[in-house]
Amino acid sequence: MEKDTLLLLEKVNQLSLSESERDTVLGFFEKRECDMEKLNAIDTENVERMVHVLPINTVVREDVAKKLFTRDDLQKGAPETMDGFWQVPRVVE
């Protein structure tokens, strides 16, 4: 992984790493890239894609609307509310 990529990932993950932490992460990825190269060398041409490690399917529910909670219940733990809205720091300039 290039350092620029790491800086981009820091930005989108809202993280701020020190230079030594960056070196650690880059070193880790260098080793993993070697592992990936070994995996990429394997011919998987006719191998079916594994979508999950366990052979299980999801359960589905019928399309029935239910009201199980009130707004007041849900907003009990809210730091700030206003007129039934959750109130958060302004997110646009």
Binding site: D63, V64, A65, K66, L74, G84
Partner: peptide, 27 residues
């Protein structure tokens, strides 16, 4: 065109009072 949301049973109807069609999952 469903009656309920994709991952919880809250109503998927358009409009309504603010935060009236909500539950811990969709919150």
């Amino acid at each position: 065109a469903t009656k309920s949301k994709i991952f919880c049973s809250c109503s998927a109807e358009f409009g309504g009072e603010q935060n009236d069609h909500v539950c811990p999952a969709c919150c």
